[in-house]
Design a protein around this nucleic acid. Structure first.
Lengths: 231, 231
DNA sequence: TGATTTATGTACCGTTCCGCATAAATTATG
DNA sequence: CATAATTTATGCGGAACGGTACATAAATCA
């Protein structure tokens, strides 16, 4: 497994080709596909694939696992998403999309700094601890510690994910500073890295089945330091 | 790869059996082994195996990889260390031993708090960024995010590793507090988790090839928060 | 020296791996 | 209806996988 490291990607499926101009836009309204209809919904299949990758990691997941999880057989999988690596990348993108959406929802809620952070960590922990066979941790952290080193494309995705999270936290701290919720002397950049670090440590520990109470306590302690102890 | 999760370990090699009492202790002095002599040194082989696991992860490493790295053929590997999983466990223990030793050396140096922490992180980053094919990150973090969930024995090792590191940091902060280097109001437990979190975040980022300067900056920022900004 | 013990090296086992070739199935189009 | 387009389903091929049987080699012990 060591020597075969050629992220060549010959697979490129032509997009459905929207020949008709300007769809009504409201309904995706498949423009009448030509051949035998799909037996799967791409997004659902991708979510199932993500579940497996998230649980087992890239190297620990076989195409048969993916086939079983998605209900698609291998050739269909290949036709729909490309090879295992491409499917992993698409799964990771789906994961990031989901995370980004939840995060921006939380940001839009526009709560006081500490409450917002508390909510963010609660959302994160819900994700990290979900999974019926055991806690899943953070997919970005898992990908970083495994595939990112030797696969440039995957590494770029991971880097983007890490940076996005840093920036998101930094925005929170800056906003808090503008509102006077945070001392002007505080450095939002530094705090954002600490906030990310807290995310990473609870992701790692979650994967080692550290119970939620303990993770909550770690978050609380970190917030006490970052936001100042309340009361 | 999903369904076979039986960490059964039939292999149990009887310890070398120190029949003679109270060796001179200074020299390990092999008490004359009986058959054909080994062509390998167990510790060296284990270190090589660790190198591979550390780089590729458990699932990403094949017995052939290990064979090539150690110079031992598969039957010898099996005879010496048991199956792949046992070898992984022994590699991890070797890793922990090494880490523990460096850490306790640093602790014994008995420096002021900030300098001691700086040294710890420098040592950690040296480890995380070493490896000629790319940064290796932290083996505990890698193991936590991969094997720890479903393998109880490995999970125990990881948990021990995490707790040991937490405790080590806590000791540093307590000592600093006793010496008046750290405010009495500070919570050594909380700070120790933050210190570990910083370790984890730089381990994750190292694996994503974030350059050392950036990691150093993250450490510096975290130290500013934990120790108070100097100057 | 011969028996015993331990380690090595070769070669193989059955399984699983990924990817694909090919045929059957199901739809739209002409 | 026939044809083209597209997906599903079966199953093969060759490689890699983890693990082991067996013969050989090298040491000690009697």
């Amino acid at each position: 497994m060591v020597q075969k490291r050629n992220p060549s990607a010959p697979h490129a499926r032509p997009k459905p080709k929207k020949t008709e101009a300007a769809q009504p836009l409201a309904s995706p309204a498949e423009p009448k596909r030509r051949g035998r209809p799909r037996a799967y919904q791409p997004e659902v299949a991708l979510a199932r694939a993500l579940d497996v990758f998230w649980k087992e990691g890239f190297a620990g997941t076989s195409l048969d696992d993916l086939s079983a999880a998605t209900g698609m057989n291998r050739p269909s999988l290949y036709g729909a998403f490309g090879d295992k690596r491409e499917l992993y990348i698409k799964s990771y993108e789906a994961y990031r999309d989901r995370a980004r959406q939840r995060i921006s929802e939380a940001f839009a809620a526009d709560l006081p700094m500490r409450e917002m952070l508390e909510r963010i960590y609660a959302i994160a922990l819900d994700m990290y601890l979900s999974g019926k066979d055991g806690p899943r941790g953070c997919f970005t952290v898992m990908t970083a510690t495994s595939e990112a080193v030797f696969d440039p494309a995957i590494r770029n995705l991971v880097t983007t994910g890490l940076v996005e999270t840093d920036r998101f936290f930094a925005r929170i701290f800056k906003r808090a500073q503008e509102r006077g919720e945070l001392a002007a002397s505080a450095d939002p950049q530094v705090l954002s890295h600490l906030a990310s670090a807290t995310l990473h440590t609870i992701a790692v520990r979650a994967r080692a089945r550290v119970p939620r109470a303990e993770l909550d306590a770690i978050v609380k302690g970190a917030l006490d330091v970052m936001c100042g102890k309340p009361g």
